[in-house]
Every structure is written in structure tokens, then in C-alpha cells.
């Protein structure tokens, strides 16, 4: 980015973190409408994180919980055991 990028980069981060005020958002989007480089940068940031969000949640094998339980120390049963 060759324009006054620091300012806009920090605005981009704020917007992506959902921490920007309405005014900050407007300033950013107005700038993006006029600056090809910043727009490309912003789109790329969104594109990469969108790919992460869209990753499938991996599936665990069915016996997972059972196998965790099997590795726990023996259950304390004060009332029953002597």
C-alpha cells in the first residue's frame, strides 16, 4: 500500500474486529471506494479469514468419550467401598 496506509490499516483492523464506530466505518469505506490498493488489501484480509471460517469442523471417532472415561482414575465411591 502506497497511500497513507497506516491509518487505514488500523481502521481495517478495527472494522474486522467489529470494534469500529459507525463514523470510523464510514471513513474507511469512503476511502476504499477511491483507493484501489487499500480496497484490494481489505478484500484480501477478508478473503483469508473467510476461508478459515468456512473450514469444516473435524469429526471425532464415535468412541472418543468412552476412551476418555477408560483412562480416568477409578471412580471414588466412598459410600460403597471400605
Amino acid at each position: 500500500m502506497s497511500c497513507a496506509s497506516k491509518k487505514y490499516l488500523s481502521l481495517m483492523n478495527k472494522v474486522l474486529d467489529q470494534e469500529a464506530t459507525e463514523q470510523e466505518e464510514r471513513i474507511l469505506y469512503e476511502h476504499l471506494a477511491n483507493c484501489v490498493e487499500c480496497r484490494a488489501h481489505f478484500d484480501e484480509l477478508k478473503y483469508s479469514t473467510d476461508l478459515l471460517c468456512r473450514l469444516a469442523h473435524p469429526q471425532l471417532p464415535a468412541g472418543f468419550t468412552k476412551s476418555v472415561l477408560a483412562q480416568l482414575p477409578p471412580e471414588k465411591r466412598h459410600a460403597i467401598r471400605r
Partner: peptide, 10 residues
């Protein structure tokens, strides 16, 4: 992290 991903993924 986001910036690194952007650089490498695009």
C-alpha cells in the same frame, strides 16, 4: 496473524 495469512494466501 491475519496479515501473514493474507500475504501467503493471496
Amino acid at each position: 496473524g491475519r496479515e501473514m495469512l493474507r500475504k501467503n494466501m493471496t
